[in-house]
Structures are given as structure tokens and as C-alpha cells.
């Protein structure tokens, strides 16, 4: 028996539509579940008081500070490297074997699992460079991890700057670097910021690479050479060791809200940037 193509089409569309709906439903479920359980716990007091009793009660202030410092270190190191690489690839060289090697390196780095970054950071920054479990070790490790994201987004953003901009700048007698600095970078800025924000989002959510490099001390870090516990690590420890499900949900809610906010801002920046350039 032959089924008419119209019917197969209807069945296929139904199945694919359901698959899409299912994917979206999971996303909505995860977010709503975490918010529903976590938001009642969250308050200004939760955010800004010290944890008591290993996190069983009290707030999450030191982990908030730890997360911010670690992310700042990672971004401060990865941004110049990533943007510099992107400028070199787009403005200073043609496609060649060297650019292929550079891109290959960035792609491979992007595929390395976070636990490998953790192992590396532990042996290199913590042990060999004797930085110990510290915000510095963790931040450097994360910088390596988010570098590919920043390179790729910055490259896309710089490529999207119309060539006529550069031509006008050159015709006015500007050098290549002056053109990059005063023409290309300002117009590519929103795209570059998108990449940085995606990197921030990844840094905040990362656990495996951080726990072995920044440690998990719950004390308030006094310097960048102190160990610190990020919100993700705190959440992991609370949940896994069954210290406090309630505070785990609270921390998860803050994590999810922060990351969603950052990523949404990043995407909307990118959209506006793309719209402007078309």
C-alpha cells in the first residue's frame, strides 16, 4: 500500500514540530523549576550575608565576590588576547597556512572538556607556578577556556565591518593601525562585547575547571592570591554533599538568572549590531 505524500508530510511535520516543542518545553521547565524552588530563598540578605555552618544557613556573599573577581581576571586576560588574535586574522594577514593553524588551535581549544582545563590549571598554575588555589590560578585557567569564544565572535564582528569604512580611512592617509583603532574597532565593538559577555556567562557557570584551580574556601577572599569558592562550586557542594537543598536552590536561581540576563543582553546586542550592518 502506498501512503500519499501529503499524509507522510503531515506526519513528518507533526513529529518534527513535537520535537521542537519538546526541546523548548525542557528549557522552560528547567528555568521555571529552578526559579520556583529558588526564588523564595533569594533575598538581599541571602545575597549579602556570610554563610553560616558550611552554607547550611546564611547567605552567599563570599561566593558572589569570588565569582565576580574570578570572572574579571578571566575576562581581563582573555579579551586582549582574543581581540588581538581576531584583529590579526582579519586585518593584518591573508588566508594562509598560518591563519589555518591559528584557527585550528582556537577550534581545538573550544572542544577541550572543562575537566581537562581543570587538570591543566591545577598542575601548571597551582603547582608549577606556585600560585596555589587562588583566584589568579582559576582566572587564568578560565581565560584559556573562554579565549576561543572571544576570538570567534570578535572575528565575525570585525569581518562584518563594511570594507568601505576602511577604504575611506586609508584614503584620508590613516595607517593600518590607526584605521583599526579609530574605525574598525569602534564599529565592531557591540559584536566584540557580545563575545566577552558570552565568555562571562561561561565563566560564571563553570565548575569543573574552577574547583581544582581556585579551590573551595568559603572565606571572603582578601586578595587575588586567595582561594575562593564561586557560586557554581558552592551550589555543587551544597547539592552534592546534601548540606542544604534550600540554599542550593537559592544559589541555582541566582546563577540561572545572572547567566540568562548576560546571555540575553549579549544576543540582543549582537542582533542590533547585525541589523545595523545590513
Amino acid at each position: 500500500m502506498r501512503i500519499p505524500p501529503k499524509h507522510t508530510q503531515r506526519a513528518a511535520v507533526l513529529v518534527m514540530g513535537l520535537a521542537t516543542l519538546f526541546t523548548l518545553a525542557i528549557l522552560v521547565f528547567i528555568i521555571l523549576f529552578v526559579l520556583e524552588k529558588g526564588l523564595p530563598v533569594v533575598s538581599l540578605k541571602f545575597l549579602f550575608t556570610n554563610p553560616q555552618d558550611m552554607g547550611k544557613s546564611g547567605g552567599i556573599l563570599p561566593t558572589l565576590v569570588g565569582t565576580i573577581l574570578l570572572t574579571l581576571v578571566a575576562v581581563a586576560i582573555a579579551t586582549p588576547l582574543g581581540v588581538g588574535t581576531a584583529i590579526y586574522l582579519t586585518e593584518y594577514t591573508r588566508e594562509s597556512r598560518i591563519t589555518r593553524i591559528i584557527r585550528f588551535g582556537a577550534d581545538c581549544l573550544a572542544g577541550i572538556p572543562s575537566i581537562i582545563f581543570g587538570l591543566f590549571g591545577f598542575i601548571f598554575f597551582v603547582t608549577i607556578l606556585k600560585m596555589g588555589w587562588s583566584i589568579m590560578s582559576g582566572g587564568l585557567t578560565l581565560a584559556f577556556m573562554i579565549l576561543p569564544t572571544i576570538i570567534r565572535t570578535a572575528e565575525e564582528a570585525i569581518k562584518a565591518v563594511p570594507n568601505s569604512y576602511r577604504e575611506v580611512s586609508f584614503s584620508l592617509g590613516a595607517t593600518r593601525w590607526e584605521t583599526v583603532q579609530k574605525v574598525v574597532l569602534p564599529s565592531a565593538l557591540p559584536g566584540i562585547v557580545t563575545g566577552i559577555m558570552l565568555g562571562v556567562g561561561r565563566s560564571i557557570g563553570e565548575t569543573a575547571a574552577v574547583i581544582f584551580t581556585a579551590g573551595s574556601s568559603l572565606r571572603m577572599p582578601a586578595s587575588l592570591m586567595d582561594s575562593a569558592r564561586t557560586m557554581s562550586v558552592h551550589f555543587y557542594i551544597l547539592a552534592r554533599e546534601g548540606i542544604s537543598t534550600e540554599n542550593a536552590y537559592g544559589t541555582a536561581a541566582i546563577l540561572v538568572i545572572t547567566i540568562l540576563f548576560i546571555n540575553l543582553t549579549a544576543y540582543s546586542l549582537m542582533n542590533r549590531f547585525v541589523a545595523k550592518n545590513n
Partner: peptide, 17 residues
């Protein structure tokens, strides 16, 4: 982009769910 947001949710949160 909504689905890409799924990628931003930390792996510990997935684990916890």
C-alpha cells in the same frame, strides 16, 4: 537563540535537575 540559551545553563544545574 532561545534554544542557544539552553547552552548557557551551567552543567551543575542540569545535574541537579
Amino acid at each position: 537563540p532561545t534554544i542557544e540559551l539552553l547552552a548557557g545553563i551551567p552543567s551543575v544545574v542540569y545535574g541537579f535537575i
